[in-house]
Structures are given as C-alpha cells and as structure tokens.
Design a protein around this nucleic acid. Sequence first.
RNA 1: GGGGAGAUACCAAAGUGGCCAACUGGGGCAGACUGUAAAUCUGCUGGCGAAUGCCUUCGUAGGUUCGAAUCCUGCUCUCCCCA
Length: 303
Amino acid sequence: MNKILIVLLGPTGVGKTDISIDLAIRFNSEIISADSRQFFIEMRIGTAVPSIDQLTKIKHHFIRFLSVEDYYSASLFERDVIELLPRLFSKKSIVLMTGGSGMYIDAVCNGIDDIPDVDPAARERYITRYREEGISGLREALKILDPEHYTKVDLNNPKRIMRALEICDTAGRPYSSFLIKKKRERDFTIIKIGLERTRSELYYRINSRVDMMVEMGLEEEARNLLNFRNMNALNSVGYREFFEFFDGKISKDKAIELIKRNSRRYAKRQITWWGKDKEIKWFHPDSAPEIIEYIGESVNKAK
RNA sequence: GGGGAGAUACCAAAGUGGCCAACUGGGGCAGACUGUAAAUCUGCUGGCGAAUGCCUUCGUAGGUUCGAAUCCUGCUCUCCCCA
C-alpha cells in the first residue's frame, strides 16, 4: 500500500495544532512538526508549542529538539525528515506533517538543491563588507563572482546577495551553478491541506493568542533568552520585541502591540508563500468532516 | 455667557493661492524569496483603468479668483481658557 504524507499547513494562529491532533488520532498517525521555531527547546510559550496533553496524546517529532545555539536549516530538515519517514512508514501508512514554515515544508515535499556549507569566515567577510561599503559593495562583488545570479537576485536584499557571495567564496564557483531546481521524487504520496480563515477572524485570533502568551509568561521566557539574542533562533516574533523593551527602547505595551502586528505580517507572508501552490486544497479549520472526507478520497486515489 | 484654537484620506499628522489626489508615520493590501526563512526584501494604499488619463475629495453652504485644502462669509461640530 502507498505511503501517504499529509501536510497540514496554514498561517500562524489559524488553528493547525488542534486539528492536527484530531487528524492524527483519526488516521492513527504520528506528527512531524514543520515549524522552524518550535524546534528550539528554550522557546515554548512564544512559539505556541502544542500542550503537554497534546504531546502525550500523539507522538510528535521535531518539537523542541534543538537548543537556540544550534545551527539548523531547511536543508537539514529535509535530510532529517526524509531519514525519519521510512521508520514511521514501517508502522504507519499515513504520517501527518503540520506547520507554518513554507520553506521547510517545500524542502520536504520537493527537495532542495545541494549547496555546500558556508565557511563562517566567508560569511564574516561579507558581513563586514556590507557594514563598510553598504549594499553597493555587495552588488559589485556579486557582479564579478556570479554575473548570472546578479541579474536574477533582488539587488535590494542584502541577505540574498550575501548568501550567494558566501557560497561563491566557499565553493570557488558561482552560487547559481548549484541551483538545479529539480523537483526531487519522493516514494510517498503527498496530500497538502491548507487551513484558512477570513483575515479579520485570523487577526483576531492572532491578537488574542499574543495576549495569552503574555499571560503565560512570555516576558519571562524572553528575559531568560536575552543572552542569546544574537542567535538566529531569537530573531523571531515575540522575542525581539521584548528585547527592545528590556533595552528600554519601547514600553512593554508597545512591545506587545508590535508582537501582534509582526505576527499578523508574518501570517500575511505565509499566505503569500502558499498562494501559488496549486496542490494545496484549502479548508476552514471548522470543517474537520470535509477535511477527513477529502483525505479519504485522496488516499483511495493514491492506492 | 465671554475669549481662543481647530475640523485634511482607515488613523495620526504636514500642507496655508497654481509644482496637490495631497509630505510623512502608523495601520492595511499585494508581491518576491533554494540553508538566518517567525528571516530578508519590494510595490501599492480616494474611485475607474493595463496605461497616457478621466472622475470625485481636505467639516458644510456660499463667495473671491484664470485657478482654493489654502483667502472671505454664514452654518455645524470638537477642544481649551475665563465666567
């Protein structure tokens, strides 16, 4: 019988967690989390990790398995999930993956090109160059090292250019030469289910969830992570705003307000990311019966 | 009752005769994005249009002027001070 990976995705706050538990029970499945910030053990409240109760009900993978000091990436996630899946499929025919990190989900579904790891010294070099010469310095370097990519990248986006330059440096050949962009074939069927709500509904939920996080002690959680603020994991909604508050730059109320706004913006970006993916079948989170029916149909088709 | 200040687009706030469909900020909308992705970046934000453009706006009703968000008058409302 065909192995099935159900991918349950949707913007932050839409209500993925609750449904994922229901679906996992219904289809006797375990859950793979595809939320790039729920990976970190120190970040529990601000990332809306499933409750203890939910975690004991259903076996979850990739939840709080890293420290904020660890390096991780979409590519590592692809590797780890693809390595884990055969083991899960040996006992379950259906596995559920749920989360909101579009790039990580794509990495699992379609694969991501093999690109060498960046030499930290190279990264440092270009960070310095950016600081000293600004974005035009980066552009000039890219024009020389990878003229092809130069015509394609967003020349306003320093991170994009730096990334390409780092690769050029460490690999000794153009970044663009690594971009094969070939979809990787998987030996399991993927069913993508998107959860959506009206914008006002979603924003209301996001806002009140932030208030809830604050009540649960987000401030304390953030304060305990202040020393790690430079780690990438902490460059996240819910933490960076509190760091600003700790710095005395903004009031606590302002920080909370910004967390809400930035969460809304994040949700918007997620929606944009998935907008072009025609494989996703969209449902309202209250439509569990329809979702189950759709999964049933798709599973039959896949047989 | 007397005196003063003000009413600008979703909100805040510039503009004080033509360069104004109106600075800027917020909020919002739309988009890009292959290893930092909860990141990073871009555009739009009176209506219609792909666009040159056309139409309706700066409390409200008039007036002055070739021309008004900007000047004058009446009215309505808000705020502050004195009583």
